[in-house]
């Protein structure tokens, strides 16, 4: 473990908690893409299947349980409890256009063809594009609630910090995982224009609105 990965995991945890609190406190999931949350739940489910038979550390197991529980809790809030506030008119991204290429790519490029490894690879590729329905929804509505923009910033910052972690691990323990690094870079690039808008607008106290 290194400080960059720890900060990344904390950002990730903060993002998930901020989203849960936003929906719970405002009793509304307006502006939130349920489809992205479905993809995130799928990412954690496919990546953490080893939760029950591979023990890395208490921290690792606890965080996996938290991520799994919170992602399904978020799905419950969106699709069951506050279903009436779910903006399905704007959450129209075709996620099959993300799932199918990720399945194909994880069969073409993977470290190993064991079921657990294939699921891990699939989850890495899927996580890289899981935010697209949410970014698509923000572009369709042309704006996002400030709290939603904080959620997106924390989520984007988590993987950006993981890139620093990978650089650090490369130089300190000559460890590198090309699949995770390439997917992580793509994932972070997808947030680039959002980061620009967040820093130039939200941090100056303005609303998060896309230029018309």
């Amino acid at each position: 473990m290194n400080i960059f990965r720890l900060l990344g995991d904390i950002c990730h945890l903060v993002a998930i908690i901020v989203l849960l609190l936003k929906i719970w406190k405002t009793r509304s999931c307006a502006g939130i893409s349920g489809k992205s949350q479905i993809l995130f739940a799928l990412v954690y489910t496919t990546r953490y299947v080893d939760l029950f038979f591979t023990y890395v550390s208490l921290y690792n197991s606890v965080m996996k349980v938290i991520f799994l529980a919170s992602s399904y809790a978020t799905l419950y809030l969106i699709y069951v409890k506050f279903k009436a506030t779910y903006d399905f008119n704007h959450d129209t991204f075709r996620i099959e256009f993300l799932l199918i290429p990720c399945v194909i790519l994880s069969l073409l490029i993977t470290h190993d063809y064991s079921p657990v490894e294939l699921l891990w690879t699939f989850s890495i590729y899927l996580e890289a594009v899981a935010i697209l329905p949410q970014l698509f929804m923000v572009s369709k509505t042309g704006e996002a609630e400030t709290i939603t923009s904080h959620y997106l910033f924390a989520l984007g910052a988590y993987r950006a910090l993981y890139i620093v972690n990978w650089i650090y691990r490369y130089y300190t323990e000559s460890f590198i995982d090309g699949i995770a690094v390439v997917a992580g870079i793509i994932q972070t690039i997808l947030y680039a224009d959002f980061f620009y808008l967040y820093i130039t607008k939200v941090l100056k106290g303005k609303d998060f609105k896309l230029p018309a």
Binding site: H12, V56, N60, D112, G178
Partner: peptide, 10 residues
């Protein structure tokens, strides 16, 4: 540089 078989990252 090696990619560890067991993934120790979240």
């Amino acid at each position: 540089a090696i990619a560890k078989a067991s993934h120790d990252e979240l």
